[in-house]
């Protein structure tokens, strides 16, 4: 009996019983630390927003995707109506040392400040047209502000003949979004000590949404520099 029991060093991954991943027979990639910390490549990203799912149903891809394993949605993502991926990204950028609750409360307070300021303006406006122009939804203001703050080109340092030229070049969507949020936050941090983050951030967002303020100026300066350095644009391909 004893010789029938083989004690071999063949790695068989151990997962909880109702686990859904296929069993990977053979030796695992990471030999020393056998527990993987993220989902393997073939797990698809989940689609949990109602609108996105409706779109999938229309294009009849839902059943195809349903056959694949899916990653679970993150802890801060819900299917509720008031969940916005841009707001989540912003909260992540505001967060320091992993304090998500604090970051979230700061962003929510700044939205509240925006809302109060806009409602005040709304009540001060007399004509219905003026009232209609005022945007009361803080998320829409955030979207507008980020749109106005996104640069369209970026300067890349390229070295030719010993001199580093700043060459204007294209920018990806992700990088431009990142730069917009970063500039907004940098502008907020240059504040007086007495003014709290939510208030300053609210002011910055309102300014950016109106195409005024520090952030938009910075973007316009960047564009001006790019325009000025147009002559070097061909260095990208030399």
């Amino acid at each position: 009996m004893a010789n029938n029991i083989r004690i071999l060093n063949k790695c068989i991954p151990w997962y909880p019983s109702s686990y859904l991943l296929p069993r990977i027979s053979g030796l695992l990639q990471a030999r020393e630390y056998s527990r993987p910390t993220s989902f393997p490549d073939y797990f698809q990203n989940p689609v949990f927003r109602k609108e996105d799912q409706a779109k999938l149903i229309e294009s009849s891809e839902l059943s195809k995707i349903a056959a694949l394993p899916m990653k679970p949605p993150a802890v801060y993502e819900t299917s509720s109506v008031y969940h916005d991926p841009l707001v989540n990204k912003l909260i992540n950028h505001v967060m320091e040392m992993g304090k998500k609750q604090l970051a979230r409360s700061l962003v929510e307070k700044s939205f509240e400040n925006i809302k109060r300021a806009q409602i005040e303006r709304y009540h001060l406006a007399t004509t219905p047209e003026a009232k209609a122009k005022i945007e009361l939804d803080p998320k829409k203001i955030l979207h507008k502000a980020i749109e106005n703050a996104k640069p369209l080109l970026q300067l890349q340092p390229i070295k030719r003949g010993g001199i580093t030229y700043q060459v204007p070049g294209p920018i990806t969507e992700k990088r431009s979004l990142f730069l917009a949020i970063k500039w907004l936050l940098e502008a907020t941090y240059e504040k007086e000590r007495t003014v709290h983050f939510p208030k300053q951030f609210a002011w910055e967002l309102l300014d950016a949404a109106n195409n005024t303020g520090k952030v938009v100026k910075r973007k316009q300066d960047l564009h001006r520099l790019c325009e000025a350095n147009r002559a070097y644009a061909h260095y990208r391909w030399q």
Binding site: P16, P46, V47, M70
Partner: peptide, 11 residues
């Protein structure tokens, strides 16, 4: 399942 609610998070 497409929303990923039914996947066990084993991380």
């Amino acid at each position: 399942h497409v929303a990923g609610l039914l996947t066990r998070d084993f991380r």
